[in-house]
Amino acid sequence: MTALAGQVHPAPDAYHTARVHWRRRERRRRLVLTLLVAAVFTLAVLTGLWVLNSAPTGSATIPEPDHPPAATAPPRG
């Protein structure tokens, strides 16, 4: 076994090649994550704008009461 292991030699640029592949995968992972975050953010903004725009025209944000409020007695002082 030792004789066989002594005959195996790594390629001279094995570390460099592995590092290049690792950096490429890391860049790709970051790019995919960035695009995914941008897509989710854009979808959330567009959904929010669509919901705000789909409200009926002229509808009040705070509903108006059907009858005026009851008169209250002035504060005692």
Score class of each variant (00 low, 15 high):
H16M: 07
T47C: 09
N53R: 15
L35Q: 14
L4F: 08
H21S: 04
A60C: 02
L35M: 14
L33M: 01
H9M: 12
A73R: 10
P63Y: 00
D66M: 00
A71C: 00
R28Q: 15
T47R: 13
H16A: 15
L35E: 12
L35H: 07
T2S: 12
T17F: 03
A70L: 09
V51C: 00
T17N: 06
H21N: 12
V8I: 15
D13I: 05
S59M: 05
P10C: 06
H67W: 03
T42S: 14
A18C: 01
N53Y: 09
N53C: 08
T34Q: 10
P75W: 05
F41A: 15
A39W: 04
S54K: 07
E26C: 02
R23H: 03
R29E: 13
T47K: 06
A38F: 07
L52A: 15
L4K: 07
L31T: 11
L4E: 05
T34H: 03
L33I: 03
L31W: 09
Y15S: 05
A5M: 12
Q7W: 05
V20Y: 00
H67M: 08
Q7N: 10
A55Y: 14
P10Y: 09
P56Q: 09
P74K: 06
W22H: 06
R28V: 04
G58P: 01
L33N: 13
V32S: 04
V32G: 02
A55K: 13
T47M: 09
N53A: 15
V45K: 03
P75M: 04
T17C: 00
G6Y: 01
T61W: 14
A5G: 01
A11Q: 13
P56M: 00
H21R: 06
S54N: 14
P65W: 02
V51P: 00
L46D: 00
A55W: 09
A14Q: 13
A5V: 04
P69I: 00
G77C: 11
V20G: 02
N53D: 14
A44G: 11
G48C: 06
R19F: 07
V37L: 13
D66Q: 05
A73K: 12
E64A: 10
A55T: 07
L4R: 09
T2R: 11
R24A: 14
M1Y: 06
